[in-house]
Nucleic acid binder design. Structure first.
Lengths: 169, 169
DNA sequence: CTCTTTGCAAACGATTTGCAAAAAT
DNA sequence: ATTTTTGCAAATCGTTTGCAAAGAG
């Protein structure tokens, strides 16, 4: 589940796909945006603003720009923002794949890892069942969020740990 | 799942139980703390700092004190803090019951409601299975968090809606 | 050439901290 | 009497906004 640089969607590379999404939404393709999207694509894991900014070549773009771009990307659905149990909000690029699946968040490194579909297949089924039950009771627009957290084995920790918990306390 | 004022734990009322926890932890029992705990107990649902402070008799205690007390309570395990998908962090009192169960968060009112155990029984089972799988792979201290969100039917919305999303964007 | 995006500085809101006064033991 | 807790004011942190300059189409 890491470093998926060469995948293509409809015969396009991820960055081409993303740029097309910008264009389609009437947003301009700028150097900072390309860098941000590239960082997001290369990381492939949910990433914090701070982290994305840290990945960018020094002074290649202001932190404020990262905030603004991610907000814009989120608005057009190019990225998804999710809040994790540790209070951080992380962004994931949306390259149009079916679904993002469930994640594991390491308490120590704050890194997020996908959990393979096979392991979570039945879980997904159950969750959908609950959603159906809720809908039947009059709840609408029902979605869900499942998150596992704890300590990841050293082996799965990457070389680039997240800077730190966004939230101190 | 609302207003459980008269439950007792080991023959104690919730507030007595909570005060005992304070004493045991070497924390002093003060008027602000009693008020905060009472607010938490009466609400019974995960509540925001702002909300708890709002429930307190006017000027009965400073907002800063609410922050400090909740941090202290969390540290001794008297309350649990959880982050919800909308970015708010809410506190729930821990009266020693088995488990808190799963919740539904209303996007519009930000209210949190418990989902009955029967509906989520199988889900809980699946989640535990995933946890076991992760442990078998070397992950430790594994826990999880499941959250459903959407719009609650008008009927289940209470008279005291949460103030507002803590997080603007 | 026009409209969008960027950078910088300043504003902001939520949360935290320092410190002396007040309260608990 | 000693130690913790409180309130207030001020500091801090992440995030947002205003505005003029730079860049994209």
């Amino acid at each position: 589940m890491v470093g998926a640089k060469t995948e293509v969607i409809d015969g396009q590379t991820p960055i081409t796909f993303a740029c097309a999404a910008l264009k389609k939404a009437g947003l301009r393709i700028t150097q900072p945006r390309i860098s941000i999207l590239t960082a997001l694509i290369e990381r492939k894991q949910p990433s914090s603003i701070e982290q994305i900014h840290g990945d960018l070549a020094k002074d290649s773009c202001d932190l404020v720009t990262v905030y603004r771009c991610l907000a814009a990307f989120e608005e057009i659905g190019l990225v998804r923002r999710s809040f994790y149990h540790n209070g951080t909000s992380l962004y994931t690029i949306n390259l149009g794949e079916t679904n993002t699946g469930y994640h594991f968040v390491c308490k120590e490194t704050n890194q997020v890892e996908g959990i393979d579909a096979e392991t979570t297949a039945e879980l997904r089924r159950c969750v959908l069942m609950v959603e159906e039950t809720l809908k039947a009771r009059g709840y609408t627009d029902v979605t869900h969020m499942v998150e596992f957290f704890g300590k990841a084995p050293q082996a799965t920790r990457t070389a680039t740990p997240l800077t730190a918990p966004a939230r101190t306390n």
